[in-house]
Design a protein around this nucleic acid. Sequence first.
DNA 1: GAGAAAAATTGGAACGTTCCATTTATTTCG
DNA 2: CGAAATAAATGGAACGTTCCAATTTTTCTC
Lengths: 345, 345
Amino acid sequence: MANRMKATILDVAQRAGVSKSTVSLVLQGSPLVRPETASRVRAAIEEVGYVYNRGAANLRKAHSNVVGMIINDLTNPFFAELAVDIERVFQSAGLVSFLANTAENPVRQEEVVKSFMEQGVSGLIVSPAHGTRPDAFERIRGSGLPVLFVMRRLPGSRVPVVAPDNHQGAFVGTRHLIGKGHRRIAFLGGFPDMVVYHQRVGGYKAALAAAGIEVDDALIVEADTNRKGGMGALETALARDPQISAALCFNDAVAFGAMIRLRKRGLEPGQDFAIVGFDDVAEAQHYVPALTSVAVDTAGLGERAAHMMLNMIRGGTTHAEDHIGAVNLMVRASCGPELSKGRAA
Amino acid sequence: MANRMKATILDVAQRAGVSKSTVSLVLQGSPLVRPETASRVRAAIEEVGYVYNRGAANLRKAHSNVVGMIINDLTNPFFAELAVDIERVFQSAGLVSFLANTAENPVRQEEVVKSFMEQGVSGLIVSPAHGTRPDAFERIRGSGLPVLFVMRRLPGSRVPVVAPDNHQGAFVGTRHLIGKGHRRIAFLGGFPDMVVYHQRVGGYKAALAAAGIEVDDALIVEADTNRKGGMGALETALARDPQISAALCFNDAVAFGAMIRLRKRGLEPGQDFAIVGFDDVAEAQHYVPALTSVAVDTAGLGERAAHMMLNMIRGGTTHAEDHIGAVNLMVRASCGPELSKGRAA
DNA sequence: GAGAAAAATTGGAACGTTCCATTTATTTCG
DNA sequence: CGAAATAAATGGAACGTTCCAATTTTTCTC
């Protein structure tokens, strides 16, 4: 049934009664080979159970058809969704994308990057792990390999970025809370060494300032950008100031964590305390209470990122214009005393 | 700073004043090379910005250090979690794992498999897409490449499997609902061409039979195994028999979907209708109401799968004993009128 | 300090592909 | 029909590594 030893292009050639060059031509769909010969070769390929050896090919060609995606937290549905969206575009473009998770671990990230490089990927799409050294990707990019950041950027880095308008998102989210009458509003999650953090905190502060509310840095709580981080951050915020009545969360995961802790403290989110998230993951609208969140058009960003990478690869350049996607506040129950119900009716 | 052309082992050799063979030895950490020479070589590697060409190496060695993971739905947090758990084990074993999503699309799956094969992976861990032809992986396995199924198996396939005890899980879930007094219990989600479906439906029927309740096939509703499928399935079930008071769901995603639709119909899950899920994803315990679910020990299964794959690779075999993991019903609010609250207090 | 033994280093062939320059087969047409 | 043009097929070198056998260097022993 199956031959023990791996079949090569030469076995195929022999079987089909042609030269290895002809087989190679067929493999690349060249029009130089006569149709009947081509189909004879294709039959032979099938018969000997030949699998193309991409490694050997790349050795000659020096460019592959795979791009690597490096994601900081696949466990966060937002990133999983993003990865899947990007993957879809590559697929229809005839490229393959392989995915690797870093779990926010820069060391792990380095290993993964190394592996992808060794495999000879032709591009890298990265959502860098928290704690990544700012110049971590400069050398790679300098060597001519296209690198694209998604969602996150590194301070001072010249790597192109696809990301939502973080400042604006945080701004409208905060403004909405202010509009609901809140004055003591916390910002939960993220760390100062993340560029995104500054952008979102910036939007938050700008909204407060615009409303003439004094910014209190004690209300800005650093934490991991996942559910657990959200839980801790809420506790910290409330410990620092029990008067807080609302929070803008770094992302939806943090928001879910915060809501869980609110309940544990006997506070009902959307009633006793207003919560706004960021990302608008699928769960947001189905959660109880439904989570008000800044929608970032995941699919749109993913598509854009994939196309930018395709252009870089095809154009042989490592340069591209940053893309900042528009955001959209989805108002739901979590941020207001039944206001959203009124809207829906 | 960075040289335009890619540095090879020869450039390193020249720079370090040794032969390419020596550099190769250093690269593989051979003890045959004198420590001082080794460090000189390592310095040279750094200086010329050399990246190892795994493709060229594999050409000679005929075995790589990467294993491919093919997942049917990364958007399902359960599978994302599983993938991450598996990845972790490989990492600490010094292997790299690349991940690809098939979105339950057999065609896409075929492409992904092909790519992995071409890259020369040394093993494949697969959660096969719905609709995969039963013999889809036999040829690959026949060619000597270790293949391991996780969570799902294919009918008649000889590929080893790591999965939870689906029959038992469905059995205890259903028995629990019966214990709560329910008699008209639906089974939501999945398709008859999935082996897992039969196992879970089997457990469900066995529990009904054990309680002397007649099985009504109309209460078994086929649907996609995601949230949307759950929504549709609940509607269908209720349409077929409005008397239904409980449902065992194929997985948590389906359960969440069902609960969303219950609410939309004015039925409160855990009060007017009991729901039991399967997988016990992280969200289950935090959802409102908290979801009763069959816990499958994701981390344990993932670890087991990774180790089995490691053994197959190291042992040069494509054979392994199936592993069926124990399950554990996590009773929470979604399935009983305040019973869980009593427990918690 | 010479010879043997051990340690360190090395050149060359091989891996499976692509691509170029050729060769060979086929078609066109004056 | 024969020459020119075109189409199809081919052999060989090259890609960057590993591994073997061989060579050179170092260390040991008496």
